[in-house]
Nucleic acid binder design. Structure first.
Lengths: 210, 210
DNA sequence: GCAAAAATGGACCCGCAAGTCCAAACTCCG
DNA sequence: CGGAGTTTGGACTTGCGGGTCCATTTTTGC
């Protein structure tokens, strides 16, 4: 299935993907014309359709995949090591920093709901991203439970689902209002809540660990 | 500024707006052609451009306004009367019910971030909606604080911001995964958190109310 | 160094959907 | 009834942008 591309070919292909991604981040999916991508990457139509025979749809899918991966990579190594409260806070800070910097330019926006029908597979990419993201958070919560830092009776899956939703909503509101306040509030209050529940439970059980 | 439309004219205009709204809900903004709206509403191009001289953009703006208002209306009378825990739960139930029914068809999706540049004013409509929505929640929290049901030291604005973000994210995840779990988790955990903080504070102050 | 395969440039095609225009039909009021 | 203003229908124009095609150049493998 993997087509035979030379080294140079792969490089060109990659250049097109990252160029398209940048263009989309800056101007939005529906504002980007193939011409824009060609201009920015210094390529021609012939090349684009050579590397993406299905045309725009295939390119969008590749971009989506690329950007989805990037979202998680940007959170490492924190996201995979939520093993102490300071790690959680570092993760929190990274998220704020990352989205503050990204501002209103969300590459994956516009791939949701029925809007994303334009690139059928793209929807799946987003779903996959959410799934991986939530799993990482769940794992983090479980870790904290194993050390007693979070109460054992917390439903890790459910808590992770809520936190992920909060983050997504925070980013969404950043996109529409330009302010990061919502994201900050969600992260701080949710994490605090996980901590205080631990404290409350520990207190009522009369036996803190440590 | 208000153009002179006869009764019949107003009716036609309204028919076009609601028809367009329905079409968009079903098929997504970028899939809807003016022709589709005309077909559904039994109108002609002449009429559409008669009532919306600026064309599609003006129509989209009208639709956005219409749908934004609907979002809040659908939450009444609960949203404006968050004065007891049972009222909060009723609101929660209404939200779940509403979005479960709406499913993957979000009329305002696609108006966010730079995607929404297609209709410059539409962005403002969404921002306005969020603002009104959050204010209502803040007000509800304040109400509960005034009766002592929520601890006075809770920052109502911040808590409302977090809850709103959670809701938005929950809906977003509903759009991309088709499952309502995230929205449920956010609502339940956030509301629970508001309640337990009240309990905790009351307990530690040694004086519960009622 | 040579043939086969891959990479590149860019002119051209073509369909779609927004927007224009105007003539015909209503309707409102005196 | 008459005519000014409003509403309606729909044919036509137009520009944009995705996709096709092929000739040319470069690279690869032997």
């Amino acid at each position: 299935m993997t087509r035979a591309f030379t080294r140079k070919g792969e490089a060109t292909r990659a250049r097109i993907v990252t160029g398209a991604a940048a263009e989309i981040r800056e101007r939005g999916v529906d504002e980007v014309r193939l011409e824009d991508v060609l201009a920015r990457t210094g390529t021609s139509k012939g090349q684009l359709f050579h590397y993406f025979p299905e045309g725009k749809e295939e390119l969008l899918l590749a971009v989506a995949q690329h950007e989805a991966d990037q979202v998680l990579i940007d959170q490492e190594p924190m996201l995979s090591n939520l093993t102490s409260w300071s790690a959680w806070l570092a993760w929190r800070d990274r998220l704020i920093e990352r989205y503050l910097e990204q501002g209103v330019k969300c590459p994956l926006n516009g791939l949701l709901g029925q809007t994303g029908r334009r690139a059928p597979g793209a929807q799946a990419v987003v779903t996959g991203l959410m799934w991986r993201w939530q799993n990482a958070i769940t794992e983090g919560i479980r870790q904290m439970q194993s050390t007693g830092d979070i109460a054992a009776d917390v439903d890790a899956d459910r808590a992770a689902a809520a936190l992920l939703a909060g983050i997504q909503g925070g980013v969404l509101l950043l996109l529409s209002t330009g302010k990061i306040d919502h994201l900050e509030a969600v992260l701080d209050l949710t994490i605090d809540s996980l901590r205080s529940e631990a404290r409350a439970t520990a207190a009522q059980e009369g036996n803190a660990n440590g």
